[in-house]
Amino acid sequence: MEGWAEAPGFNPVVPGCNGAVFAAYLDTIIKPTLVGENPRQIDRHWETLATGKEDRLYMLPANVVGVIDVALWDLFGKEPGQPVYTLMGGAARTTIPLYWSTGSGWNLSPEEMLDAVRAGHSMGFQAFKIRMDWKGWRQDANPEKDYQMFKLVREFLADGQYLGFNATTATRSRRPSSRDAGLKNWASTISRSQSPTGICRASSRWPTRSTWRSRRASRTPTAGGSTNWFYSVIPTSSSPTSSAPAGRRK
């Protein structure tokens, strides 16, 4: 019986991403930790890899833990011959509407982004999102171009067809950052450019500390601040050695 997942590997879209890092985690931590264990203990294995177990603290990155988790769920379903959604408690629906997501907006012209959106539109998609994929240091310093990109796509789509704007970032800082500055610039641009067609209604007073509060200021679904690090979502107030037995603490 096998379970399958996709691990980080070579990707021409993401230069520098290769399988060597994942292979190192696999050989040095995951195999020594999990080989011989019961594969049905999915949540226990997730906790072990994402946090730790007994006196060992692992805290592996989410994109490493997730690979193992997905493979274990696939395996878990194959043994009894059931789909994963059934083993997770049952599907509320088995037909799920999708939205077509296209990124790297910071590196595209508005026309190039529109072409990417057209590709999904020709496949019958009814909902869309365009991602700027700004990193924490905000590669794109041209919010006017971002707005023109958004406007071009919005005008291409029909009324009622969903369009979201994702100012994807990778910052993990809780302090005001370039992410917030980028969103503020974008929002200011939109505010200056509000059109009678109501393409977007954004407040010129864009909060700099909370992306979620910012989102409420706009009629356009806007996202930002996504992060890939477990230590941003799991409380890390404990010291790295706090899970060790008292006698071993230093």
Partner: peptide, 27 residues
């Protein structure tokens, strides 16, 4: 691919999931 299918299986179990699920072939 597989990761997307895993996400969809989990999302299918959410009773109050009213939004569409993301899909992209970029990566």
């Amino acid at each position: 691919g597989i990761t997307s299918m895993a996400s969809l299986h989990a999302y299918a179990t959410v009773q109050n999931a009213v939004h569409p699920h993301e899909f992209s072939t970029e990566f």
